[in-house]
């Protein structure tokens, strides 16, 4: 057993756990933060996406002990217009991938603001690349939605991105 201090949603939590416990299981099973979902436990679906110091990670592929002292944000710690936009654009059906989609999108928007290109960006060195539907879809392709709510998800993200640009 290892004692670690995990900082989740602004609160430091002390945990005794085996070094092989994933961050995802630590959140869900030890801290009862079940908003983060487990879809594959193999880093293939993105349902477990959380933010670590603002960057998106698959928490199923992360060991909890590696993230001691880092700032973890789960869906329970998110309060953002994107959530209402998901509902408005019906960017969800069953809801099981939704937490991961939202966390992933928040970090994706930050990556875009920081100038990160994607595989569909024509000129990787260009600045101020427009966040088109194709750009959003490409950058969100690590998050699967089996209900097929992709159109609504992209619309929600695009609307929020435009709101943020307009501000």
């Amino acid at each position: 057993m290892v004692e670690i201090h995990l900082r989740v949603n602004g609160v430091t939590r002390s945990l005794d756990l085996e070094p092989w416990v994933s961050l995802l299981d630590a959140l869900r099973e030890r801290l009862d933060l079940t908003g983060t979902k487990k879809g594959c436990d193999q880093g293939a679906c993105g349902a477990c996406t959380v933010l670590a110091d603002g960057e998106r990670i698959n928490s199923c592929l992360a060991l909890a002990v590696q993230y001691a002292g880092r700032e973890i944000t789960t869906i329970e710690g998110v309060a953002h217009p994107l959530q209402a936009a998901f509902v408005r654009h019906d960017g969800l059906q069953c809801g099981y991938c939704t937490s991961g989609q939202i966390c992933s999108a928040l970090a994706m928007l930050a990556e875009h603001r920081a100038g990160a290109p994607s595989a569909v960006t024509g000129d990787p060195a260009a600045t101020g690349v427009e966040l088109s539907r194709a750009e959003i879809a490409e950058r969100m392709s690590g998050n699967l939605c089996r209900c097929g709510a992709y159109n609504g998800i992209v619309s929600a993200i695009q609307e929020v991105a435009e709101m943020e640009t307009a501000r």
Partner: peptide, 19 residues
């Protein structure tokens, strides 16, 4: 009309079978 469980699903409040 927006789905009635939309907020529960976008805030992580919705609990599924293993939760």
């Amino acid at each position: 009309i927006d789905r009635v469980d939309g907020t529960a699903k976008t805030t992580g409040a919705a609990r599924y079978a293993a939760e």
